[in-house]
């Protein structure tokens, strides 16, 4: 079970770096991703926008598996800054979990 964390929603939606709210859920990003990981990046961002912090954190490995190659961004019709969004989640984990 997981629980929505309103503070996490606030951090995500008020961040200047995280702009996944523009996502239209077309799924092209996942289709072209060379990693072939279902969660990357659309579902992952959906978890973040919904405030499902637990789901985001239990997928820490996937967040660091992103190559930041921007193949998804090149094909995104909604101008989502996908690599920067992944970096935002890494930054969050670095501070909140790894204490770096």
């Amino acid at each position: 079970m997981t629980k929505v964390n309103p503070d996490f929603i606030k951090k995500v939606t008020t961040s200047e770096e995280f702009n996944a709210t523009a996502c239209i859920n077309c799924g092209v990003c996942t289709a072209v991703c060379p990693m072939d990981v279902e969660l990357l990046p659309r579902k992952l961002f959906r978890y973040a926008l919904l405030g499902l912090e637990d789901k985001v954190l239990e997928n820490t490995n996937v967040i660091y598996q992103c190559l930041l190659c921007k193949m998804c961004e090149e094909n995104c019709t909604a101008d989502v800054h996908i690599a920067e969004n992944v970096r935002f989640l890494r930054s969050y984990i670095s501070k909140e979990v790894f204490k770096l």
Binding site: Y64, L68, R87, F88, L89, S91, I93, S94
Partner: peptide, 9 residues
């Protein structure tokens, strides 16, 4: 450090 999101460092 940038790619890994370690922003302070």
């Amino acid at each position: 450090a940038y790619d890994l999101g370690v922003d302070d460092a």
